[in-house]
Simulated assay, not measured.
Amino acid sequence: MFASVTSAAIAALTSDSPLFTINIGDFHWTVTVGTVIYLAIAAIAGLLAEFIVGWRLPGGLIGAVIAGLIGIWLFTHVLPFTISGDPTVYGVPIFRALIGAILLVFLWHLITFGAWRHRRPYYRRGD
C-alpha cells in the first residue's frame, strides 16, 4: 500500500499536472509543476551568473530570475545552438540557460559600470 502511494505521488509530481489555478474575470492562469521547475532553474541560473560575474542585478532574487528567464529564452529560441551532453530538466537545457544568464549579467555590468564607478561613498572616514 505504501509503495503504491509513493509511486503515485512521484508520478503526479513528474507529470505536468496543475498545482493551482488563478481566475480573475476573463483571466485564467494555471501554475503547473513544469512552471515551478522552470522558474527554479531560472533562479539558480541567474544567481550563479551573478556570482560568476561578480555583479548584482537590481531587484535581488526577482532580477536574477528575470535574467535566468531571458537567458533561457535567448539561448533556446533566439540563438539556438547545441552543447553535447547538455542536461535538460523539463525541456530546459541547463548549460545554455547558465550561459545566457551569464551573458545578460555581464552585459548589464558593462552598461551600468560607468554609472557606479564615479560615485562617491555614502560616508567618509576621518571627516
Rank of each mutant, 00 (worst) to 15 (best):
25 G>L: 06
96 R>W: 08
33 V>K: 00
97 A>G: 15
90 Y>E: 00
20 F>C: 03
123 Y>E: 11
117 R>T: 10
33 V>W: 01
27 F>A: 15
52 I>R: 07
58 P>D: 11
50 E>Y: 04
19 L>F: 05
20 F>V: 07
20 F>K: 00
115 A>I: 08
54 G>C: 09
51 F>T: 11
58 P>W: 11
45 A>D: 05
25 G>V: 06
124 R>V: 14
116 W>D: 13
70 I>V: 15
71 G>R: 12
13 L>V: 02
67 A>N: 12
120 R>H: 12
7 S>N: 12
85 G>E: 07
12 A>T: 01
77 H>Y: 12
65 V>W: 02
71 G>W: 09
100 G>S: 12
43 A>V: 00
127 D>W: 07
74 L>F: 14
61 L>N: 04
92 V>M: 04
105 V>Y: 13
73 W>C: 06
65 V>H: 04
60 G>N: 12
114 G>Q: 14
71 G>F: 09
79 L>F: 15
86 D>I: 11
54 G>A: 13
24 I>K: 03
125 R>S: 10
94 I>W: 01
6 T>Y: 04
2 F>M: 11
113 F>M: 09
41 I>G: 00
6 T>A: 09
107 L>Y: 07
103 L>M: 13
84 S>R: 05
46 G>L: 09
91 G>F: 03
7 S>L: 04
20 F>A: 03
121 P>W: 08
99 I>C: 08
113 F>C: 06
16 D>E: 05
4 S>W: 06
55 W>Y: 15
49 A>F: 08
107 L>H: 12
5 V>I: 14
21 T>L: 05
73 W>F: 13
32 T>L: 03
110 L>P: 05
83 I>M: 10
56 R>E: 13
61 L>S: 11
45 A>P: 10
15 S>L: 01
30 T>V: 12
87 P>D: 12
69 L>P: 00
24 I>V: 14
9 A>R: 00
98 L>A: 14
